[in-house]
């Protein structure tokens, strides 16, 4: 199987998808507007990166749902308003505090909720901690992987809403890695993308 990544084309997407560090994790890049030309079922995973303008995907909502119902896996990272084009997502935004770490001893509150999960073989708590944009009310039966300080999900796997699987997070690693900003986001992708390749790509939903 293989991984298809939606390429919205901003500099941070170009840097994340096309530079040598990660480009081999994406078998094919597709422009949002060209999704109709791709047989999605040929791919095990469809990745939708941070800050994909939602209106560029809303017109493909039905195709994305059909792909999920066919057993596909969609990974959607933060700041893309994914509730507008993916099913079963309830998102609550929150003001982002970019400066929390300036206070000595401060704790953003992010916690790994499922330390035994394979994703965390290569990711530690500091690798999922940079700032917060909001949380989700995950559907019952979803696997919660990480939570904010109030225990609300910020990273989870939903294999109950559809016959497929959705990996949903409010974290925005591609935006910051692609902006050469915030080393934690690069560490996150260093662990997340191998997990996507080794588990999501090879183990069907």
């Amino acid at each position: 199987m293989s991984i298809l990544a939606v390429h919205p084309g901003a500099y941070y997407h170009i840097e994340s998808f096309e530079s040598p560090r990660y480009r081999n994790y994406f078998d094919r890049l597709v422009r949002p507007e060209d999704l109709s030309d791709v047989q999605l079922e040929d791919y095990a995973v469809l990745l939708i990166p941070c800050r994909t303008p939602a209106d560029r995907l809303e017109e493909h909502k039905g195709r994305l749902r059909a792909y999920l119902d066919h057993g596909g896996t969609i990974v959607a990272t933060g700041e893309s308003e994914s509730q507008l084009f993916l099913p079963g997502i309830s998102f609550t935004p929150q003001p982002t505090n970019f400066w929390w770490w300036l206070t000595p001893g401060a704790d953003l509150g992010v916690r790994i909720a499922a330390p035994e999960h394979p994703l965390f073989e290569k990711l530690g708590q500091r690798d999922i901690t940079w700032h917060l944009h909001g949380w989700f009310d995950a559907p019952e039966g979803a696997e919660i992987l990480a939570v904010n300080g109030e225990g609300k999900p910020i990273l989870y796997i939903d294999a109950v809403t559809t016959k497929g699987r959705m990996v949903i997070t409010s974290l925005d690693p591609f935006f910051h890695h692609g902006s050469h900003f915030m080393p934690a986001t690069t560490r996150f992708l260093d662990g997340f993308l191998p997990w996507m390749r080794n588990h999501l790509d090879k183990e069907p939903a």
């Binding site: 390429h7 919205p8 084309g9 901003a10 500099y11 422009r31 800050r51």
Partner: peptide, 9 residues
């Protein structure tokens, strides 16, 4: 802006 779709542009 910084969010320009450079591929499309």
């Amino acid at each position: 802006t910084t969010h320009l779709d450079q591929v499309g542009f």
